[in-house]
Write a protein that binds this DNA or RNA. Structure first.
Length: 206
DNA sequence: CACCAGGCATTTG
DNA sequence: ACAAATGCCTGGT
């Protein structure tokens, strides 16, 4: 059964988080995301059990509450978006970890993040247009935001923005990718033909 | 407030 | 008929 210490350790294992006890009552402990300061895991003792508050998609909220007796509406929080997990040993640790992970995903969710996730989903040997990425990220009309997001790609190692081209199949200018032919070389290494600074969207688009 | 590695519908020439 | 220019959309910095 998961203990208070293990729950905290799991919460702290996510990127960009910190722990805090912002209330008068030191029993209440929060794990928050740096920057936004949004909390995704609350830890406290109540009625002899360690409780966890986690954010939950309203669509799944009742699923969890119905599946486990030890999951109830968020104590001391907005019942629409929060659940409380009572650590009484009746829920498998894996399921608790899943709820905490989903809570983290919810508070770190943003159009920018979805854009990066969409870019990661472009298969090797294929390309996507800015508009396509916008659509995959949830809003077909935010293609401009896609360009902005890719401009400051925080993790080129895992976010293959070289697979993104404009609606005509043209590559980005020399100002991007730190060199004139870098994107072309990356695409060719990927198995994508580049002719005249363009790729054939019929053939390589997704 | 004014930028952007875009895209679309619409207007202009 | 066509290409080019314009305006607005979008979201994050």
């Amino acid at each position: 059964m998961m203990t208070r210490e293990e729950a905290l350790e799991f919460g702290m294992s996510f990127p960009n988080v910190y722990e805090e006890r912002p209330f008068r009552d030191p029993n209440w402990q929060l794990v928050r995301v740096k920057g936004s300061k949004k909390a995704f895991l609350w830890i406290y003792e109540r009625e002899g059990y360690t409780n966890l508050n986690v954010k939950v998609d309203p669509e799944w909220r009742d699923f969890w509450r119905n599946t486990y007796d030890a999951v109830i509406a968020g104590y001391h929080q907005n019942k629409e978006h929060w659940n409380t997990i009572i650590l009484d040993g009746t829920i498998p640790d894996k399921e608790i970890q899943r709820m905490i992970s989903e809570s983290y995903d919810l508070v770190t969710d943003s159009p920018t993040k979805r854009i990066y996730e969409a870019v990661k989903r472009i298969p090797q040997g294929h390309v996507a247009t800015y508009g396509k990425i916008a659509e995959m990220a949830g809003n077909p009309r935010m293609s401009r935001a896609v360009g902005n997001a890719l401009h400051k790609n925080p993790d080129p190692e895992h976010i293959p923005c070289f697979r993104v081209v404009n609606s005509k199949g043209e590559l980005a200018g020399a100002f991007a990718f730190g060199g004139g032919n870098v994107q072309k070389e990356l695409l060719e290494a990927d198995g994508v033909e580049v002719i005249d600074g363009k790729v054939n969207l019929e053939k390589y688009g997704i």
